[in-house]
Design a protein around this nucleic acid. Structure first.
Lengths: 188, 188
DNA sequence: GTGCGATGTTAACGCTCATTAACAAGGTTC
DNA sequence: GAACCTTGTTAATGAGCGTTAACATCGCAC
């Protein structure tokens, strides 16, 4: 959309490799040569698919934020607010456990996204947060909205901590633990 | 200690400015010229006080990790495990709210610390986590240790999320919210 | 007041990086 | 089979970076 280019398999490969490298070494710590090398190509080959290095990062972040929000909007629409919260938790937790690199990049590299798209990502991120806030307001109508919003941000910090801590728990146990902890933190 | 240099006021100024810049733009996104410029100096002036750019980062991270662990060890020694947990929470929360830049750098830039000190930081970080784990094991002896350790990491994610989300809550309200949420998450 | 260590400066070096230019090979269209 | 678009390559460009060298200044020891 922002690049007006078709979604080729090569593009997808580059985006996946870039997300992995950006997560491991950071945007500035990853060279265009590293990126090409990860796919068996040379650096300049990337310019056949992207306008530049920052366009790769921008597309990654726009994609992540929209995926999170789109499914979040869907799950927040459940009639029962408690069920909606559980559905949101399940969604975010499974996304974080399935895509630790994406979560890391999404958390750390927004400042390196060029300006037209940085605003877009921020807007979509805000919309995702507001889905959570809306559900929690239905669940606890007495709570001030600012406090709810701060609690949602803190909850994301809890859920997104997974990639940074490789513990000895297997995936189902980790998912259950995060769900229990987050629910307890939000409903205290 | 690692640099065998005296603690001059200039050194402290550089470390403070570096922590702020590293937190805002990342280690690779901050040049030695930016760093000097933040203090009204030129870039090369830094080499009168540090061996190089990575030595500045190393000293920041060693200092943070040791400050966290030292006070953590003190507070974890409280006889009542529940009181010890509250004391640990108060400590970590006040540190995070008082030093958002330090928390950010501590969380993100360990991979850029050169090798002799990276190991040291990891070791001290692990010791800090183990203080928390030990308190929680006293509090909930039935829980498997791996699960407790994973919960502590997730709790740090919750507490350390503060710098990334500037909400409309004032400091006491934020501290109280984080304490309540973290306690609920850990004791669920 | 001479010498000197501490703490700056500017200039220069060498390297890496993102990006572009020029060129090559393969597949598809007509 | 000729023209062409796609997708690569290597070579070159220009900027920025960390670092070092050479030089200046200032305050203090003696």
């Amino acid at each position: 959309m922002t690049d007006a280019r078709p979604a080729s398999p090569r593009r997808a490969e580059i985006l996946a490799a870039a997300a992995d490298l950006f997560a491991r070494r950071g945007y500035h710590g990853t060279s265009i040569g590293d990126l090409g090398g990860a796919l068996g190509l040379t650096g300049p080959a990337l310019y056949r698919h992207f306008r530049g290095k920052d366009a790769v990062l921008a597309e990654i972040l726009v994609d992540i934020s929209e995926r999170l929000r789109d499914e979040g909007t869907r799950r927040a629409a459940a009639p029962d607010p408690s069920a909606a919260l559980d559905a949101l938790l399940d969604w975010h937790i499974s996304f974080a456990l399935d895509n630790p690199a994406l979560i890391t990049v999404h958390e750390r590299e927004l400042d390196n996204v060029p300006e037209p798209q940085r605003h877009q990502v921020r807007r979509v991120q805000r919309a995702y947060v507001e889905e959570w806030v809306a559900v929690l307001r239905r669940l606890r109508p007495d709570e001030p909205e600012q406090r709810i919003r701060a609690a949602v941000h803190a909850c994301f910090g809890l859920l997104n901590s997974t990639p940074h801590s490789a513990t000895g728990l297997d995936r189902p146990a980790m998912a259950a633990l995060l769900h229990t902890m987050a629910r307890a933190a939000l409903c205290c």
